[in-house]
Structures are given as structure tokens and as C-alpha cells.
Design a protein around this nucleic acid. Structure first.
Lengths: 133, 133
DNA sequence: AATCCTATGTGAGGTTTTCTAACATAGTTT
DNA sequence: AAACTATGTTAGAAAACCTCACATAGGATT
């Protein structure tokens, strides 16, 4: 959960924009929320505001639905994927603890070089990088 | 005008989101539009939709206003900057025409490697890269 | 000092967008 | 055939946004 994730999770888009970006109907988007596949933020006035992550999820949902997966299946897939990334994160964390100071410096340097780029670790291919260069 | 510019100019955000992102009032944003410092798109229902470029411009406007520059000054600055980038683009275009095929292949390869990253050529320092990693 | 100008605040009245809730339905699944 | 799933559609209400108009503080101009 570094800075970039905070940014990618910023609530920015109203449902109308998301409809166009994803080519999903409002009904579909709300239905997926109802089934807890996404959890868009709300304004004070109770209107949904979606993040880039939400849009990624919706595009992923759309793909899976096209492939015949139902709500339950998608939910499970999301769960697994989340666990996976948790495991990877933990491993990375653990690996760091085993490093020498020298190695750690190298690692940090490389991570810094990565900053400022898109680097989604998604199973999908064409995610939001389609919309922002 | 490559693909990425199309993306950065996509109308996405309603004024409410832009207000929060820029900490400008709706009145201010509309006033700057009235003075043609920005030209946000409109929905079918006549609501403004702002792009990432619009938000960059607004942040730039805000900086300049803080520094005491008035509307006319900002307008001139924007004009100059646009001319500048036009010149740069022309130069780049001209340079390409003078290249050998070999050099051209190299150039294209490098440009492709750049794809998928943010690379604003703005005078400002902290632009939208603040919001998206 | 009186006036004008610039940038912004505020409010009214109207329209668009979104909200929830309900009912409808074509395809599955049981 | 009955039930379920995913989606469409509609209605009524509320939020967000629109334009236009008037107000005003602080600078600039006369």
C-alpha cells in the first residue's frame, strides 16, 4: 500500500463516466456492487464515485462475464487474486528482512526507479493504461 | 498528437471532483473557462467534463494566481507555452525526416518503450503525477 | 477621494444526473 | 414447471450542476 495505490483508489468518476469507459449499464454496475464485486465510494449526497481500481475491476468483470463466469465465480476469482497478491507482498516483505544492508540499498534504488510508472499486477491484459498513456 | 494525448484529453471528471482535486471553487473554475484558459467538454446535458489536461491547466492557473499573475498574463503564458511545444514538435518531426531507416527504427523502439508511462512536458513541477502514480 | 475593474462569493430558479425500489423478462438451473 | 440469475425499465425523489444576476473587497485609474 504505497502512495500510488492510494492514488489509484481515489474516488473520482461518477457513474455516467464509468458507463462510457466500461460500456456497462448503470444497472449492471449497481448489480455488481450489490454483489460486492466493487465498493465505490460515495459523495456526501450518496452518489457513487469510482476509482481507477474500480474501473479496472469492472473491466475484469466484463471480461469474465463474457467468458460465462457468474457472480459467485467472479467473487471467488477476486478473492483468490487478492490472496495471491497478499502472499506475494508478504514474501517480498519477508525477503527484505533477510537482506544485507547492501542488498537493501540496491532494492530501494530499484523501487525508486519504478516510481511514477504504471505497474498493475493484474491478470488482465489491457487495463486502464488504455485510457491514460 | 499521439495516442497518449488523446487519453490525457479524455473528458472524465465532473466539476465537483475537479473542485476537490484542485481546491478551486466552482465559480473560479467557470470564470477561468469564461476567460478561455480552459475548455472542458460538455455532456449531452450541458454539464462540464474535465480532462487530465484541464486539471493540469487549473493547477497551473492556481500557481500563477498565487504568484500575482492576472487572467491576461496567464493567457499569454499559455499561448507562449503552446507555441513552444508546437515548435518542439515541429523540430522533432523535421528531425525524423532527416533520419536513415536504421536510425528511425531505433527511435521507434525507444518511443515504444516510453509508452504506458506518464511523460508530461510541463513547466510545472508537481502535476497530475501526484494523483496517479 | 471617487470611480472603475478584477476576481470571487452567493443565491435563485431550472435542468440533468443519479439514487433506491419495484416490477418485468429472457435464459438457465433445479 | 418453478425458481433463479442477470439485466431492462420506470417512477419519484434528491443531489449536483447549469446560467444569470447581483454583491463586494482590494487594486488601479482618474
Amino acid at each position: 500500500m504505497s502512495g500510488k495505490e492510494i492514488r489509484r483508489s481515489m474516488p473520482l468518476f461518477p457513474i455516467g463516466t464509468v458507463m462510457q469507459l466500461t460500456e456497462l449499464s448503470a444497472r449492471q454496475i449497481r448489480y455488481y456492487e450489490e454483489h460486492q464485486l466493487i465498493s465505490p465510494a460515495r459523495t456526501d449526497g450518496n452518489r457513487r464515485l469510482f476509482s481507477l481500481n474500480d474501473i479496472d475491476s469492472l473491466l475484469e468483470i466484463k471480461d469474465l462475464i463474457d467468458q460465462g463466469v457468474n457472480m459467485a465465480g467472479i467473487k471467488q476469482l477476486f478473492l483468490v487474486k487478492q490472496q495471491q497478491s497478499n502472499v506475494l507482498e508478504q514474501q517480498a516483505e519477508k525477503a527484505k528482512q533477510d537482506l544485507t544492508d547492501e542488498q537493501l540499498r540496491n532494492l530501494l534504488r530499484h523501487e525508486l526507479q519504478q516510481a511514477g510508472r504504471f505497474n498493475r499486477s493484474s491478470l488482465r491484459q489491457g487495463d486502464m493504461s488504455r485510457f491514460f498513456h
